[in-house]
Amino acid sequence: MWDYTDKVKEHFLNPRNVGEIEDADAVGEVGSLACGDALKLFIKLDEKKERIVDAKFQTFGCGSAIASSSALTEMVKGKTLDEALQVTNQEIADFLGGLPEEKMHCSVMGQEALEAAIAKYRGVDAPAHGHGHDHVENEGEIVCKCFGLTDGFLKKVIAANKLHTAEQVTHFTKAGGACGGCIPKIKEIIAEVMGEEKKAAASKPAAKLTNLKKMQLIQEVLENEVRPQLWADGGDLELVDIDGSNVQVAFRKACAGCASSGYTAKFVEQKLRELVAPDINVQEVQG
């Protein structure tokens, strides 16, 4: 059984704002029966057409999809359109006290429906996502054929939520969750997005790192960049010590005693040199 928060359960059992607004100013639709979830969002603006005075929804989907829709409508009421566009999927999840990662795509669907509604109202194209039927051809190529998701949409969600693995991308967007055929392509897109972030980071003037900053950065890189890759091969590592530019690590699980651990240490060093500082040395220790 899913570990839903009480707030998710409460919004599922007593959803706010179910229904439709007959004279809505904006309507956004995403998803389909085939996808397994769909959301139709209605928005009513005040007389000056500035602020959202009412929002209603209809949702086909699981418990967290209904709860996310209910949360979304509560969150956008009283906001201007520009303010509403600032609502992120993470904020929808936070409003509900969190969602299981496998269900994050429900919060993404809420954000998409909102964007689609506002874009339609303003007479512009919605950002490429492919999840709705109308916008598939607009931008980017379809990556996930099962759910009809474009690379533009995936890149956006990957960057906004700092996703590192194909599994996370599936949890947030559903891409790759059915036949799995596009998972290699999703990995390429993750690499691309991460590469762009690195470039952006590199283009900033390289500030001299304080020791504390350097240690923090080393830990972050090991957690986010290195360990997930080792996990994929059944391995792991532990940070033992940092002394200036010397980093000591101990290998665990499949990496421990692996004949290729020398190469693995080199890989770790390369990553740290690339992302933290060029003078880093990595040493493997038993510990």
Binding site: D37, C62, A65, G177, A178, C179
Partner: peptide
């Protein structure tokens, strides 16, 4: 259904 099992299909 998919959503209960962790799979999406």
């Amino acid at each position: 259904s998919a959503c209960t099992s962790g799979s999406l299909e």
